[in-house]
């Protein structure tokens, strides 16, 4: 009468095909009334309205917030005793810099775009160095409890030293602005990467370690198949924290080392009392920092789900 599958035979439950059969068998309502069911178009329409509403809010709300912020800024700056220029004055006086970001008229007169690229170049070099050393050393101390105990106290002390405090030592060692700035970036970005990597390696579940032991996964194979994918979420957290800190550090370091770079430009503008130029630079610094963070976040979202 009713077909029995292997599973249902074992558990002695009859295997029904359609709810209508169950209705007949038990005399209970398995299906809702035809007349009360929503039509396909009704459901689609309410979905669409909801999505449109969400899209409008996602655009309108941030715009609204930004406009309020700009208005408050203009209000604050309209006060005559305040030295901070308002948004309209800023755009007006510094229009040269906004319109031509890449002009180059010699060592002391370059566009903002060029300055930012110089800064990014230093950040790039210091950050890459921090990634290699941070991940490398992080893996070593994560794997070896002995090494961890040996170096952890000194790392805990070193990591609290503010980036700028490293600058005099760095300048004394390298004597030039460029390597000193790169070193400051490196030492700033190093600690979050190193510590997060070490934690990630320590947190590898015991079961995966056992699998590695039983199936003889050693050396390079262990590294690529077990260690890196398991620690990846932690490593990327470290990378994201570090890029933000590195960008903060470069602006501050360049103010002191001089030469080129957005930090230098800000400090130079201050010395020449070009307030609107400072405001523009600060806005650009903010946007670049935001872009860097989003970039690492995007990388993280692409790579970590593969390992998750």
């Amino acid at each position: 009468m009713h077909t029995l599958t292997k599973e249902s035979r074992m558990l002695k439950i009859p295997d029904f095909e359609k709810p209508e059969q169950q209705e007949k068998q038990y005399g209970i309502h398995m299906l809702p009334k035809e007349s009360s069911m929503l039509t396909f178009t009704e459901i689609e329409n309410s979905d669409q309205k909801e999505r449109q509403r969400k899209r409008i809010l996602n655009i309108l709300l941030p715009i609204f917030g930004t406009v309020v912020f700009v208005l408050l800024w203009a209000l604050y700056s309209s006060n005559p005793s305040v030295t901070l220029p308002g948004p309209f004055a800023t755009i007006d006086e510094s229009w040269e810099y906004i319109a031509h970001p890449f002009f180059d008229n010699g060592p002391n007169d370059k566009g903002l775009g060029l300055h930012i690229l110089y800064s990014l170049q230093r950040v790039g070099m210091g950050y890459l160095l921090a990634v290699f050393l941070g991940v490398g050393v992080g893996i070593i101390i994560g794997k070896s409890a002995l090494m961890y105990k040996a170096v952890d106290p000194i790392f805990q002390i070193l990591r609290t030293i503010p980036p700028l405090a490293w600058l005099p030592i760095s300048l004394a060692t390298f004597n030039e602005a460029q390597p000193s700035a790169i070193f400051v970036i490196f030492i700033t970005a190093l600690w979050p990467i190193l510590i997060n990597t070490a934690t990630g390696v320590q947190q590898i579940p015991k079961d995966y370690e056992n699998v590695a032991k039983i199936y003889q996964l050693k050396g390079l194979k262990y590294f690529w198949v077990i260690l890196l994918p398991a620690a990846a979420p932690y490593i990327f957290t470290g990378l994201r924290i570090s890029i933000g800190m590195a960008w903060l550090a470069i602006v501050a370091a360049e103010m002191l080392t001089g030469g080129v770079g957005i930090g230098f430009f800000i400090w130079d503008s201050w010395n020449s009392s070009r307030m609107t130029d400072i405001v523009i630079s600060v806005v650009y610094v903010g946007f670049v920092g935001f872009a860097l963070d989003k970039f690492v976040e995007m990388l993280s979202k692409r790579i970590v789900p593969i390992t998750d």
């Binding site: 579940p205 056992n210 039983i214 077990i226 593969i306 390992t307």
Partner: peptide, 16 residues
């Protein structure tokens, strides 16, 4: 060693 294979309670398949 692989001559003594283990099936764990939490399967421990590598998620990636």
């Amino acid at each position: 060693g692989m001559d003594r294979a283990v099936v764990f309670q939490s399967h421990s398949l590598l998620p990636w």
